[in-house]
C-alpha cells in the first residue's frame, strides 16, 4: 500500500470518528443466483436478528438494492466494525423474459420480472459508482468463475479502488471448486463458504473485520 493511500485511509478514519455518522457501505455483488441474499440474511440474522430479503432458486429474485444499516461485527480478537450491508440485484449483460417461463410463470409475470430485473441491474451499477465503499463479490463455486461479467465487474471494482473480498459460495455442493476461483482472482482474498449450512462463515466475519475495518 502506498503512502498516499495509507494517509487517505487514516484521514477518512479520522473524519469518520469525528463526524460519527459516515459508516462503510459494503455491497454484496455477483451474478444472479450466487447466494447474495442468503448471505445478507445470514449476516443480518447473526448480528441483528433480522432478515433482509427473499431468497429464491429463480434468478433475479432481488431486483432492487436493499440496505441493512448498522450491522456491528466483532472479530475473534475483539476488534469491531459497524457497516451497512447492501444486497444488490445480480449483475448480467443480458436478460430474456423467456428464461423465466421455465419456472412456471405466465408471460405477463415473466415480462414484468424481466423489466424489473433490467432496472435492478442498472441500479446496482449506479450504487457501485456512487455509494459503495467496499465489496463482497459472491460467486457460486460450482460455476465457471471466468465468465466475462465477473472479469468486468472485478475490473470495475478495482478501478474504483474499493476493498474487495471474493466469496466462493455453495461449497456444500460436490462440484464446488473454490480453487478455480482462487486461480481466477489471485490478487484478492477468497473465502470459501456455504451460506446455506453456515460452513466457514466465521472465517468470512474475520476477513470482513480485517478488510473493511
Amino acid at each position: 500500500m502506498n503512502i498516499l493511500v495509507q494517509t487517505k485511509r487514516r484521514l477518512s478514519k479520522f473524519l469518520m470518528a469525528f463526524f460519527k455518522k459516515k459508516k462503510a457501505r459494503i455491497g454484496i455483488y455477483g451474478p444472479p443466483n450466487a447466494g447474495k441474499t442468503t448471505l445478507a440474511n445470514r449476516i443480518a440474522r447473526d448480528w441483528t436478528g433480522e432478515d433482509v430479503g427473499l431468497v429464491s432458486e429463480v434468478p433475479h429474485e432481488t431486483r432492487r438494492a436493499v440496505r441493512k444499516s448498522d450491522i456491528s461485527i466483532t472479530g475473534s480478537n475483539g476488534s469491531n466494525i459497524t457497516i451497512d450491508i447492501v444486497d444488490t440485484p445480480g449483475v448480467t449483460t443480458k436478460i430474456d423474459y423467456k428464461d423465466f417461463l421455465e419456472y412456471g410463470m405466465d408471460k405477463e409475470t415473466a415480462v414484468i420480472r424481466a423489466r424489473e430485473a433490467t432496472e435492478g441491474v442498472a441500479e446496482a451499477m449506479h450504487w457501485l459508482r456512487e455509494d459503495i465503499n467496499g465489496v463482497m463479490y459472491m460467486l457460486d463455486a460450482t460455476e465457471d468463475p471466468f465468465m466475462q461479467v465477473n472479469i468486468m465487474m472485478i475490473g470495475i471494482i478495482e478501478s474504483r479502488k474499493l476493498p474487495v473480498i471474493i466469496v466462493a459460495n455453495k461449497i456444500d455442493l460436490p462440484d464446488a471448486s473454490p480453487q478455480r476461483i482462487r486461480s481466477a482472482f489471485p490478487q484478492h482474498p477468497v473465502v470459501p463458504i456455504s451460506c446455506l449450512e453456515g460452513k466457514n462463515i466465521e472465517d468470512l466475519y474475520e476477513k470482513m473485520v480485517e478488510h473493511f475495518g
Binding site: 448480467t92 443480458k94 430474456d96 424481466a114 433490467t118 441491474v121 451499477m125 468486468m152
Partner: peptide, 20 residues
C-alpha cells in the same frame, strides 16, 4: 452494462455478450 439494461425490450433486444 447500465445502458444495455435500459435498452432491453420483451421479444426485442435482450442484451449483449462480450468476449475479450
Amino acid at each position: 452494462i447500465e445502458m444495455t439494461m435500459r435498452e432491453i425490450l420483451p421479444d426485442g433486444f435482450n442484451g449483449i455478450e462480450i468476449e475479450t
